[in-house]
């Protein structure tokens, strides 16, 4: 870590630690829009939304689908806790498409179903978008 501009970034799901690396820049989907993190970011605790997580290390870039969770920054360590994290290779495009069609046909009866539908649509749309880039 000599005069580098990297900070530690880890992505953890309940099943395993998905990613541990030294990143130069990370952009994650916060609950109210995307948020970027660079070196020496002030301590932060933030709820995340559904979207694409972009991690840039000195050598390469990574992109990942994350579904909610929390992000914490302390002492140049970014920890992303999410219940689901998928790389584009892991996304099943056909399944995402099928879900999208299914939820779009879903009827809204109350607020809860509205939120559930909205989230499901967002989830599949992000996944589709990520796989298209490949």
């Amino acid at each position: 870590m000599v005069k580098s501009n990297t900070f530690h970034c880890s992505v953890i799901t309940p099943e395993k630690a998905v990613l541990e690396c030294d990143a130069t820049s990370v952009v994650f989907p916060a609950h109210d829009g995307e948020m970027g993190v660079l070196l020496n970011r002030a301590p932060l605790l933030c709820k995340m939304g559904i979207g694409a997580l972009r991690v840039e290390t000195a050598e390469d870039k990574q992109i990942m689908f994350v579904d909610g969770g929390f992000a914490q920054v302390v002492d140049n360590r970014l920890t992303i806790l999410t219940e689901q994290a998928k790389t584009p290779d892991e996304i099943d495009r056909a399944a995402a498409e099928a879900i999208l069609v299914e939820v779009q046909a879903m009827k809204i009866t109350d607020e809860a179903t509205y939120i559930a539908r909205d989230k499901a649509i967002q989830r599949s749309k992000v996944q589709l978008k990520l796989t298209k880039k490949q």
Binding site: A30, H31, A42, P43, L44, K47
Partner: peptide, 23 residues
């Protein structure tokens, strides 16, 4: 640590506790 919270701590906690139960 003096955190910057987004949204408010109370709201965050409301999300965190169910996550704890699930885990």
């Amino acid at each position: 640590t003096q955190y910057e919270f987004s949204p408010e701590p109370k709201q965050l906690l409301e999300e965190l506790l169910p996550a704890t139960v699930r885990t």
